[in-house]
Design a protein around this nucleic acid. Structure first.
Length: 522
RNA sequence: GGGCCUGUAGCUUAGUCAGGUAGAGCGCCGGGCUUUUAACCCGGUGGCCGGGGGUUCGAAUCCCCUCAGGCCCGCCA
């Protein structure tokens, strides 16, 4: 059974309508890793719906979180905003300078991510956390947290093993300068928290407004209650012993709520590129990924892996493998058979679950996303055929396609071309035509081979330049130089691309062009 | 120091929660497609399930120990 379906089954036992949630701090550019946060919850939500359970999916944007430091992509002028909630500071321009009067920092990074989510069929109810504070929805939780201050302190200290400061307070007011940093609480008179900020200025915050926030561990527990969240998979950082999941659950109960069960997902890592980092420019954003692969395959990357396993995201060879796997599963799904072992049946259910959850629009048939051509094959055609029309002709001839190419296929070819032209395309999948044969390889050629190549050269210098004539020239050359056709092709591939096999020789030669080819054969 | 995850065929892995003859894909090898697309079709090769012990009629699966790799533990999520 797929992990999302399994979780839905557990949630059914909990009863009632389900609310799955994700939460992300928009502190910078979103990357592919954030997709797992989103899709882990969204797939569980879909699995609930598919199981006939009433369910909703909420994406909570931690817009009330403060700017922690001046990141590499920000100009030093952001120094003044450190400690300010991301919702209340200006967005940076391309130079990293703040643009006053435009969108907020939080919105600036969030919007492109939401567009990417739309493309992969994720339609969350978006909650800006600062708006929840502004609305006063947190007031009750804040009041209860303050009234239970010592209990909560005890829970956090005991479970996390961390010692909290003497003047620790379960509410962090915003100071006169707009920063959450260094503000000391001096008293509480419902609904006001009195404080003195780092500059010595005094003031009070109304807990019914966004004039302060709960510390993360309490904020999380409180929002579970506010939004009725029943399921929120969290990254492994929250899953550690004594992490925020372990404190959140009892704190939520203390505040009178029914917390979700602990579900932890593993990180996505970039293979062979070191850690994901916006500063080095090596990050792959959701939009970048979508310009390379179809959205259902991006979903499949997440859906095919168990939730507690690392995913090594790689825009190179393994993306081919995954994309081909998807294509293959769609075209020939496993079928239930008589005498199938329990294991095979389980595997079948898991696979079809992954396929089902990978669809961009829920409930659509995987077959509708089928483009009919493997990525590997298409990458080869895209490389040797410079015009799209020739690609369609070739696909028609090989029986991959009938009539006009589908929209899926057209889009797929367009993405393939941008992949091939971009920096992520794997070298081993590149078809590189040699300019000339290295000397030492020339020496290794025996007499028959040399004879074959010169025969071929002669024929190709005067035949018609179309694929049929080229094939005929190759076969005739094999015959007259008395080598098996198979060996002739092998040799030819070796000369052309340095490998024993390759794309259809005639297409390849046709694309290379007569002049360049004859120079190579000499 | 505390904790989590992973280790199954050359590679990617399913199966572990509910113990009952180890499945798949890729790769590789062979054959077919009589124009040889890295396509497509058929067949085959390949695993003392990291190691050791225990429980059991029976263990990849449960328990204990151990080795290896990855990761998390700052009011950062």
């Amino acid at each position: 059974m797929h992990w999302a379906d399994y979780t839905a089954k557990i949630l059914r036992e909990r009863g009632g309508p389900q609310v799955s949630a994700s939460g992300i701090t928009p502190s910078g550019e979103f990357h592919i890793g954030h997709l797992r946060e989103i899709l882990s919850a969204e797939m569980i939500h879909r699995a609930c719906l598919d199981a006939g359970i009433e369910s909703e999916y909420v994406f909570i944007v931690d817009s009330m979180d403060p700017l922690r430091r001046v990141y590499d992509f920000l100009s030093p002028s952001y120094e003044q905003f450190i400690g300010h909630p991301l919702a209340y500071i200006p967005a940076p321009d391309n130079n990293g300078d703040p643009v006053m009067g435009g969108s907020s920092y939080a919105e600036h990074f969030l919007n492109p991510f939401l567009q990417a989510l739309e493309k992969i069929g994720v339609k969350p109810k978006v909650v800006m956390n600062h708006e929840t504070y502004e609305s006063g929805a947190f007031a009750k939780g804040i009041d209860m947290a303050i009234m239970n201050r010592e209990n909560i302190r005890g829970l956090i200290e005991e479970i996390s093993g961390r010692e909290l400061e003497e003047n620790w307070f379960p509410y962090n007011p915003i100071g006169a300068d707009g920063s959450l940093d260094g503000v000391r609480v001096t008293g509480y008179e419902k609904p006001f928290v009195h404080w003195a900020d780092s500059n010595g200025l005094e003031g009070r915050s109304d807990i019914r407004k966004a004039e302060g926030k709960l510390p993360w561990r309490i904020d999380w527990a409180a929002r579970w209650i506010i939004h009725g969240i029943t399921c929120e998979p969290a990254g492994k950082d929250h899953g550690s012993a004594g992490g925020s999941f372990d404190t959140g659950i009892p704190i939520c109960k203390l505040l009178g709520g029914n917390p979700p069960d602990k579900i932890v997902y593993e990180w996505i890592q970039m293979k062979g590129m070191g850690p994901m980092s916006s500063s080095t420019g090596l990050t792959v954003g959701p939009m970048d990924a979508l310009s390379l692969v179809p959205p259902e395959i991006l979903r499949y990357v997440i859906a095919r892996s168990k939730i507690n396993r690392h995913i090594e995201f790689d825009t190179g060879p393994s993306l081919f493998q995954i994309a081909d796997e998807y294509e293959r599963l769609v075209s020939s799904p496993l079928e239930e058979k008589e005498g199938m072992s329990k294991r095979q049946a389980v595997s079948l259910a898991t696979q079809s679950g992954a396929l089902r959850l990978s669809q961009v629009s829920r409930g659509s048939k995987p077959m509708d996303s089928f483009a009919g051509v493997s990525f590997r094959h298409l990458s080869m055609l895209a490389q040797i055929k410079s015009s799209d029309k020739d690609v369609w002709l070739s696909l028609e001839r090989s029986g991959h396609m009938e009539g006009e190419p589908s929209i899926q296929l057209r889009e797929r070819l367009a993405r393939m071309r941008s992949w091939i032209d971009g920096p992520h395309f794997p070298d081993e999948s590149k078809v590189e035509i040699r300019v000339e044969l290295p000397i030492d390889e020339k020496k290794d050629l025996d007499a028959k081979s040399v004879n074959f190549l010169s025969e071929l050269s002669a024929r190709l210098s005067k035949c018609d330049w179309d694929e049929d004539s080229i094939v005929k020239s190759i076969k005739d050359s094999c015959e007259s130089s008395e080598i098996p056709t198979r060996d002739g092709f092998k040799l030819l591939y070796w000369v052309l691309i340095g490998k024993n096999d390759g794309p259809k020789a005639s297409s390849l030669i046709y694309e290379i062009g007569r002049t360049k080819l004859l120079r190579l054969l000499k």
